[in-house]
């Protein structure tokens, strides 16, 4: 099953713009989480007319399930401009589910410095949080049964795909 991506992206952009205005942040540092988050971050960065570099994080080295599932074989280097100290960071991901990816990204971010604030922008919130982490700007909320997955395809054109795995027994 496919989902339409233009509307959520527009809504996310609008939400984020309002949030930045409310907080009086004019030069945020937009940081996308590999891979989907980085694609969305690039769109937002361009849409907001921001200058200066765009950041990206690969959180593979910070995952909490490493000793269970091992390492992703090709981890891209995280790219953050020098001196994130005192910056207002907008962390961007495609889908938020358990919140563990964002937890890992925050840890990595703080290894680079001490930002003034961190806001979280996600294209899709599919619920199912396991940590006290909530997005500040959301493109769309989607209810999905446990065991199914939503995946951003891209980078051009962007698309959303829902993959259901009905054979997997419900975990309690």
């Amino acid at each position: 099953m496919k989902l339409e991506v233009t509307d959520p992206l527009t809504r996310l952009h609008r939400d984020l713009e309002a949030l930045l205005r409310l907080r009086a942040v004019s030069t945020p540092l937009v940081v996308g989480i590999h891979t989907g988050g980085a694609w969305i971050a690039a769109r937002l960065h361009a849409g907001l007319g921001l200058e200066g570099p765009l950041g990206s994080l690969d959180i593979s080295f910070y995952r909490d399930d490493f000793s269970r599932i091992g390492l992703n074989p090709r981890v891209r280097p995280s790219q953050l401009p020098l001196g994130i100290d005192g910056r207002h960071v907008v962390l961007v991901d495609d889908v938020i589910h358990t919140g563990r990816t964002v937890r890992a990204a925050l840890n990595e971010l703080f290894d680079f410095g001490r930002p003034a604030s961190v806001m979280l922008a996600v294209l899709i919130d599919r619920g199912g949080r396991e940590l006290p982490i909530q997005p500040d700007a959301v493109g769309a909320r989607v209810e999905l049964p446990r065991g199914s997955e939503i995946k951003l395809t891209g980078p051009d054109p962007l698309g959303l795909e829902i993959l259901s795995t009905p054979n997997r027994p419900e975990s309690r």
């Binding site: 080295f61 910070y62 090709r74 891209r76 280097p77 953050l80 020098l82």
Partner: peptide, 19 residues
């Protein structure tokens, strides 16, 4: 390939990861 990922670390900011 995995070594390639680690070779890209070690820039000015982060040499160390919590893996």
């Amino acid at each position: 390939d995995t070594a390639e990922s680690f070779a890209n670390l070690g820039g000015p900011a982060v040499k160390k990861v919590p893996l």
